[in-house]
Amino acid sequence: MVDYAHPEVLVETEWVARHLDDPKVRLAESNEDYLLYDTGHIPGAVKVDWFTTLQDPLRREFIDKAGFERLCSTLGIDRDTLVVFYGDRNNWFACYAFWLFEYYGHPQLKILNGGRMKWFKENRPVSMEFPKFPQTNYKASKPDLSIRAFRDQVLAHVQQHGALVDVRSPGEYSGELLHMPNYPQEGAMRGGHIPGAMNIPWSQAIDEIDGTFKPDEELTRLYLGKHNLDPKKETIAYCRIGERSSHTWFVLKYLLGFENVRNYDGSWTEWGNLVGAPIEKG
């Protein structure tokens, strides 16, 4: 990990094992599968569900600053707590939660390299207990708008021929796959991709065997070599709902050191339903 631009944002399973009882560390599991945490999790880890915990119950939007403060207070997280996220799907939603916590300015955040799968493959301790921690009085920072892209910003970015990374599968990108199987809530009226976007599926950044991030040299060849992305220029990543693109956002910003990368969390469920939005296929 030492060759990454910011290796300090990753921890390995051995590090987590040594800090299971550290009161200054809060482990947080964030999965696609809502029930997975309940079947067993890393001892002491709290559940941070993408949909029921992090999303507004009425609007297509994540929780506001006050809601984020309530969440952290309930989980016993203070400003000086180191929060370590991990989850299923090679840390899709762990990276989304990391991104949202950074959006509201939490100072200390890390990702468990390899996520839930690596921890379980190594037969490390698993708990069925739902931990409770003393409530805090958490105060969040103002939202960091520099890491989030809105649709009007994306449209302006397209018109300026800025770098766009579509992290979905080739079928989604081409428009051949309009609806993802088992994801009816992520549908869109039109298939395809945002004009000018290059297709770099999020999974290409992951080692298939243990789910860890690929080494720096492989990531550099993929993003800077093969696809010619410039770390000094603004880059926007998107997928369908913003979770896979937060994974790529994490790779670009923290592992490769991109200076200005944003996550378009509205992604294709917004863009593919917008009246008059430009779309390309193929």
Rank of each mutant, 00 (worst) to 15 (best):
G191T: 09
Q135H: 12
M128Q: 13
N113L: 10
E69Q: 13
V126E: 11
Y104K: 09
M128E: 09
P143I: 11
V165P: 02
H157Q: 12
E186K: 11
E102D: 14
G105P: 02
G187R: 07
Q108T: 03
M189S: 13
A66M: 05
E176Y: 15
Y173W: 13
M117I: 10
G187Q: 06
R168P: 01
K118A: 12
L75D: 01
D152I: 06
H179R: 13
F93S: 02
N113C: 11
S174Y: 13
L100W: 15
L109S: 09
Q108C: 00
Q159D: 08
L100M: 13
E129S: 13
F68V: 07
V167R: 10
G115E: 11
Q159N: 15
D144E: 14
A140H: 04
L75C: 06
A188T: 05
G175R: 11
T81R: 11
R148E: 11
V83Y: 05
Y138E: 15
P170Y: 02
A156V: 01
A163I: 04
R168C: 01
F130N: 14
A163C: 05
L109W: 07
I147M: 07
D78L: 00
M180E: 12
T74L: 14
R79N: 07
E69R: 06
W92I: 01
R124P: 01
S169G: 13
F150H: 13
N137M: 03
D166L: 04
L178K: 13
Y86I: 09
Q135M: 15
K121V: 03
G171L: 01
V154Y: 06
L71I: 08
I111Y: 02
Q153H: 15
V83H: 02
T81H: 08
A156W: 00
